[in-house]
Write a protein that binds this DNA or RNA. Structure first.
Length: 662
DNA sequence: CTAGGGTTAG
C-alpha cells in the first residue's frame, strides 16, 4: 500500500516536473522556474532519498581512505580468532570500490599468506581487481587457485573474467570461454554473461552476431533484459545504423514488453544527434519526458550540449546548461569539456580560456580531455607557445598526458615547421612510466596518428629520408598505415618532387580501397602538375571517372590551377565552364586560381569579366590574388578603372591590413 | 555481498 502511494506520488511529481523542461519543439525557449516546481523538486528529492536508507554499513564497508583500510586490516589480522570472512570481504570490496586495485590484491595475498579464510566472494573481488587493471591472465591464475582450494567458482567469477577478456580486446578467447562454459556445463550463463559477450561482439562491429546471441539466450530460456537490448542498440547507433536500432527498440518495447530506460533513450538520442536528425531528437526527448518512469539525466543533457557545440552553436549549448541547472542537476566536467572544445574548434580561444579558468570556481577539476581540447585550439591558432605552456601544466597538476595529448602537440609543432621539437615529444611519450600511486598503467606508445603527424612534419621541412626511416619504424611496430597516412605520404612525396616514388606507391596500392578516394586523386593531380607533369595530372583526371569517382570542387580547382600554370588558358576556361554543367559550381578558390592564371597571362578582358562574376556570386579575392592585381595595375597591364570593382571584392578583415591604392 | 549497458578530445 505504502509502496503504491509512493510510486503514485512519484509518478505525479515526475509528470508535473515536466514543466522543468522547455517545450520540446524549441528546446531553448526555456520556461522559467516556478515556486511550485521548486517545491515539487525538493519533494522528489526527499522521496528518492528516504527510499535509499536501507541498512547501516559495517565499519569495514565504511572505509574511505587507503591508510585507514591498511590499519584496519593489520588490526584484524592481530585478532584471535581471526574475524569472519565476511568482514575481510567487506574490507576488500571497499578498497576495490576506491579503485585501489593493486592494494586490494596485496591485502588479498596477505590474507592467503596468514591463512585467513578465503571464499569465492573474496576471490571474485581479487579477480575483478586483476581484470580492471587489464591483467586478466592474473585473474585466470586466481581461478586456478579456486580449484586448489576446492572453492567452486560461480557465475560471478566467470562473468568478471569474461569481461576482463573483452576489456583487453581478447574477443576470440572470450568467445572460447563463453562456449566452454556452456558445452562443458561449467556454469549456466545468465543475463550478465550474455550481455558481456554481446558487448564484446559489438565492440568488434559484429552487431549481427550480437543479435544472434540475443536470439540464442531467449531460446535457452534466459530472458533478455533492458541491459542486453541497450548494449546492442547503442552499438547500432554508434555504427550509424539508426533504423536497425529503432527496429530493436520497437521489438523490445512492443513485442517483448521490456521497459526502456534513460540509457536506452540516451543511446538513441546520441545516434540521432550524430546524424543531425534534430526533429527526431526532439521527438524522442519529448517521448522520454512524457514517460513518467524515465527522466533525462546529466549524461543525456551532456549529449545535447556536445551536439550543439559540434554544430558550432555554443550559445545554444550554454542554454542547455541553464536548463540542466534549472532542473536541479549539476553540470560536470564533461559538460564543460564539450563547451570548451566547441570554442576551441571555432578558434575562440579567449572564450575557451575564460571557461577553463572558471572551472575551479564551479568546483570542477580540469582533466586531460579539457587540456587536450585547449592544446588543439592553441595549436590550430598557431599559438604554439601557449600550447607548450599548457602542456607542461598537465604534469604539474598531477595529470597524465595521454596519446592524444602528445599527438596534438606533435602535429602542432610540425605545423609550425618544428619537427625536431615534435620528435623530442614523440620519443618522450614512450618513456612515461608508472604513476606514484603504484597502479600499473601501460606506458604510452606512439600510435598511427602520432606517426602520421610526425611524417607530415618531416615532409614539410623536406626531410624525405627521415620520413622513410620513420615509416619503416612504424611498420616494424606493427602499425598499419591507414588512408590518412597514405594521403600524407603521397602529398609529402609530391611536395618534395619525388615523382617516381609517388607513382610507384600509387601503382603499388593499385585498385584497393585506398585509391578509390577522391582526396587521393586531388593530391596526385595537384602534386603532378606542381612537379611539371601536367600530362600525368590530365590522365589521372580522366582516370577517376572510369573508377566511378566523382570529381569535386577541389579536383576541378587543382586541375584548373595546373592548366593555368602551364599557360593553357583556353583549356582551363573550358574546364571551368564545365563545372556548373556537372553540378559542381566553382567556389571562391576556383575563381581566384583562374583569375591568377589570367593575370599571369595578361588577359585583361577576361579578368574584368571574372571579377564581375565574382561580385555576382559574392566571392572575394584572396590576399595573393589581391597583391597580384595591385602589381598589375601598377605595371599598367590592368586598367585602373577596375579598382572600384576590386574594392568591392576585398573582404573587410583584409582592408585593415592591406593598402589598397585609391 | 559480488558481475553487465549510455556522455567529452586528434
Amino acid at each position: 500500500m505504502m509502496a503504491r502511494t509512493i510510486s503514485h506520488l512519484r509518478a505525479n511529481i515526475r509528470f508535473k516536473g515536466d514543466s522543468f523542461l522547455p517545450p520540446l519543439q524549441n528546446p531553448l525557449s526555456s520556461s522559467r522556474f516556478s515556486p511550485h516546481a521548486t517545491l515539487l523538486a525538493s519533494l522528489l528529492h526527499s522521496i528518492s532519498f528516504s527510499n535509499n536508507g536501507d541498512r547501516p554499513q559495517s565499519r569495514y564497508q565504511k572505509v574511505t581512505n587507503l591508510d585507514h583500510a591498511f590499519n584496519l586490516f593489520d588490526e584484524m589480522t592481530q585478532r584471535r580468532p581471526l574475524p569472519s570472512v565476511v568482514h575481510f570481504a567487506q574490507l576488500l570490496n571497499a578498497v576495490a570500490k576506491m579503485k585501489h586495485f593493486s592494494s586490494c590484491l596485496d591485502l588479498f595475498k596477505q590474507m592467503c599468506l596468514i591463512g585467513a579464510p578465503v571464499n569465492e566472494y573474496c576471490i571474485s573481488i581479487a579477480i575483478k581487481c586483476c581484470c580492471q587493471m587489464s591483467r586478466t591472465n592474473d585473474g585466470f591464475a586466481l581461478l586456478a587457485s579456486c580449484f586448489r582450494r576446492a572453492v567452486v567458482p560461480n557465475v560471478f567469477i566467470f562473468n568478471t573474467l569474461l569481461d576482463g577478456l573483452v576489456v583487453e580486446n581478447r574477443i576470440a578467447e572470450a568467445e572460447r570461454l563463453f562456449k566452454k562454459l556452456i558445452k562443458q556445463k561449467i556454469c549456466e550463463p545468465n543475463a550478465v554473461t550474455y550481455s558481456t559477450m554481446i558487448k564484446g561482439l559489438c565492440k568488434f562491429g559484429n552487431n549481427d552476431i550480437a543479435i544472434g546471441l540475443l536470439r540464442l539466450m531467449d531460446e535457452r530460456g534466459c530472458k533478455p533484459n533492458t541491459v542486453v537490448y541497450n548494449t546492442i542498440i547503442d552499438s547500432l547507433c554508434k555504427a550509424k545504423m539508426i533504423e536497425d536500432a529503432f527496429k530493436l527498440f520497437n521489438e523490445m518495447v512492443f513485442a517483448k514488453s521490456i521497459q526502456p530506460d534513460v540509457i536506452t533513450y540516451t543511446s538513441l538520442i546520441h545516434g540521432l544527434c550524430n546524424l543531425c536528425r534534430w526533429d527526431e531528437v526532439s521527438k524522442l526527448l519529448k517521448e522520454m519526458v512524457e514517460d513518467v518512469r524515465i527522466s533525462p539525466d546529466i549524461q543525456t543533457f551532456n549529449i545535447l550540449v556536445d551536439a550543439f557545440c559540434k554544430e558550432g552553436r555554443v550559445d545554444e549549448a550554454e542554454a542547455v546548461i541553464d536548463i540542466i541547472v534549472e532542473r536541479g542537476e549539476v553540470p560536470n566536467i564533461v559538460t564543460y569539456n564539450s563547451l570548451i572544445d566547441g570554442c576551441c574548434l571555432r578558434g575562440e580561444m579567449t572564450k575557451a580560456r575564460s571557461l577553463f579558468d572558471s572551472l575551479t570556481s564551479k568546483g570542477l577539476v580540469p582533466n586531460v580531455v579539457t587540456y587536450n581540447s585547449l592544446l588543439n585550439g592553441y595549436c590550430k591558432s598557431l599559438k604554439i607557445e601557449e600550447a607548450m605552456h599548457l602542456f607542461h601544466e598537465i604534469t604539474r597538476k598531477g595529470l597524465k598526458p595521454n596519446v592524444r595529448t602528445y599527438n596534438v602537440m606533435i602535429s602542432g609543432l610540425c605545423r609550425e615547421g618544428m619537427p625536431e621539437e615534435a620528435k623530442h615529444l614523440f620519443r618522450k611519450m614512450g618513456e612515461s612510466g608508472c604513476p606514484p600511486d603504484g597502479i600499473t598503467r601501460k606506458g604510452l606508445k606512439p600510435d598511427i596518428v602520432s606517426y602520421s603527424a610526425m611524417l607530415q612534419g618531416l615532409f614539410r621541412v623536406g626531410r624525405c629520408g627521415a620520413a622513410r626511416k620513420l615509416f619503416d619504424e612504424m611498420r616494424s611496430q606493427g602499425l598499419i598505415p591507414n588512408e590518412c597516412t597514405y594521403r600524407i605520404i603521397l602529398a609529402g612525396l609530391c611536395n618534395n618532387h619525388q615523382v617516381e616514388d609517388v607513382l610507384y606507391l600509387f601503382h603499388l596500392v593499385g585498385d584497393s580501397k585506398l585509391n578509390t578516394d577522391i582526396q587521393v586523386y586531388n593530391i596526385l593531380i595537384d602534386g603532378m602538375s606542381k612537379c611539371g607533369k601536367l600530362d600525368i595530372a590530365r590522365d589521372l583526371f580522366q582516370d577517376l571517372t572510369l573508377k566511378g569517382l566523382k570529381p569535386n570542387v577541389r579536383t576541378y580547382t587543382v586541375m584548373v590551377s595546373g592548366l593555368c600554370r602551364e599557360g593553357m588558358l583556353e583549356e582551363a576556361k573550358h574546364l571551368f565552364h564545365r563545372m556548373d554543367e556537372s553540378g559542381c559550381p566553382p567556389n571562391s578558390v576556383t575563381y581566384n586560381v583562374l583569375l591568377q592564371g589570367y593575370l599571369k597571362n595578361q588577359n585583361s578582358d577576361d579578368v574584368e569579366m571574372l571579377l564581375e562574376e565574382m561580385d555576382g556570386r559574392r566571392y572575394s579575392v584572396d590576399a595573393s590574388t589581391l597583391s597580384m592585381l595591385i602589381e598589375k595595375i601598377a605595371a599598367g597591364s590592368v586598367d585602373r578603372s577596375m579598382l572600384k570593382l576590386i574594392g568591392k571584392l576585398v573582404p573587410k578583415e583584409m582592408m585593415d591590413t592591406t593598402a589598397v591604392p585609391r
